[in-house]
Simulated assay, not measured.
Amino acid sequence: MADRIPSMPRSEPPHNEGFALVAVLAFLMMFAMFLAPFVTASKVRALTVSNRFESMRLDLAAQAINDTLSSKMSRDPSFKSKLLEASRQAPQSCKIRNITLTTEVLDQSSLIDLNRATPELIALGLESLGLETHQAAETAQAMVSFRSFARDAQAASRQTPTSENMKHGPFESVVELHEFAWLQPIPLDRLARLFTLSNPTEILTNRSLFPDLQRRLSTVRASESNDQAAAQDVVSLTTTLQTGGGFGSDYQVVVIDNVNKTYSTQITMRLRQRHEGAASVPCAGLLGTEISAFAEKGLNP
């Protein structure tokens, strides 16, 4: 009887192994989809923190630059006059490597004080912004009513174009001018070149930044000589710093003592509004080599 040859066992196709591989890949894809939003959120948070840190750094640098500008203006009248005259046209910009520095220095005596000026002067200023005569007069009366604790019944009865539920008390910021319907289309930086909270008088004792208003001022009470005004200047300084990923600013109102060659800061605050300068030039030509070198060292250690 012939020997029987044992049969070899059949090999089954690896169906189980293939299914396990597909299951692992599917799990990894689901896990990646689940994890992706958290990764994106982490990246966004890290970028936000980085931008906030950069903005804080630029805020402090802008404040230091304003302090240095104030100190030099108090000691050097010609430097003060140079900055004031340059800013009459527009904010001035210069470059420090990849950083754009924009500065604006305004004499507060050339601006209309929101809490002191007469309705007639306010109306003239509003007309220089392009408002019609009746719009300017109504808005000026509404502004006087706005800054008064007691509502002016006569002004209220005229249904002046203002926002509802407005407060009644002194202006605290030029931003509040956007409470008035006729002024809402006007950019805040343009309003800030006409109005202020820091003119120590109710009139303009210096040339307005708006030529049309300057021509109209002959119809308003002429300014009187003031020895105290000659002994000191009240100026505002706005400095902004911009990079590709950050923005910083500082706004100050300072009183410059022309007799003792000193200055004192009345107001300091941060601005979130970007200023566009008239030109981009080296900062040494605008601020001088000393301040330019100080700024560059602080911004690019």
Rank of each mutant, 00 (worst) to 15 (best):
Ile5Tyr: 03
Ser11Pro: 02
Phe19Asp: 00
Ala20His: 09
Ala32Thr: 12
Ala32Gln: 11
Ala36Glu: 13
Pro37Tyr: 05
Lys43Ser: 14
Lys43Gly: 14
Arg45Trp: 00
Arg45Phe: 09
Ala46Tyr: 11
Thr48Asp: 09
Thr48Ala: 10
Ser50Tyr: 06
Ile65Val: 15
Leu69Tyr: 05
Leu69Asn: 08
Ser71Glu: 13
Met73Gln: 12
Ser74Val: 08
Ser74His: 10
Pro77Thr: 04
Ser81Cys: 00
Lys82Asn: 11
Leu83Met: 14
Leu84Asp: 14
Ser87Trp: 07
Arg88Thr: 05
Glu104Pro: 00
Gln108Arg: 07
Ser110Val: 13
Asn115Ala: 03
Ser128His: 01
Glu132Ile: 00
His134Thr: 06
Glu138Lys: 13
Thr139Lys: 08
Gln141Phe: 09
Met143Val: 04
Val144Asp: 00
Arg147Gln: 02
Ala153Lys: 14
Ala156Ser: 15
Ser163Met: 15
Ser163Trp: 11
Asn165Ser: 13
Lys167Thr: 05
His178Leu: 02
His178Asn: 01
His178Gln: 00
Glu179Arg: 15
Pro185Asp: 00
Leu188Pro: 02
Leu191Gly: 11
Phe195Glu: 03
Leu197Val: 00
Asn199His: 09
Ile203Cys: 13
Ile203Gly: 11
Asn206Ala: 15
Asn206Phe: 09
Ser208Met: 04
Ser208Ile: 06
Leu213Met: 02
Asn226Ile: 01
Asp227Arg: 02
Ala230Asn: 15
Ala230Cys: 12
Ala231Leu: 07
Gln232Ala: 15
Gln232Glu: 15
Asp233Phe: 02
Ser236Trp: 07
Leu241Ser: 11
Thr243Asp: 04
Ser249His: 01
Ile256Cys: 06
Asp257Arg: 01
Asn258Ser: 11
Val259Asp: 13
Val259Pro: 07
Thr262Lys: 11
Thr265Ala: 01
Arg270Thr: 06
Leu271Phe: 01
Gln273Tyr: 06
Glu276Leu: 14
Glu276Met: 11
Ala278Phe: 14
Pro282Gln: 13
Gly285Asn: 12
Gly288Pro: 09
Glu290Ser: 14
Glu290Val: 10
Phe294Asn: 01
Gly298Met: 15
Asn300Gln: 12
Pro301Ile: 08
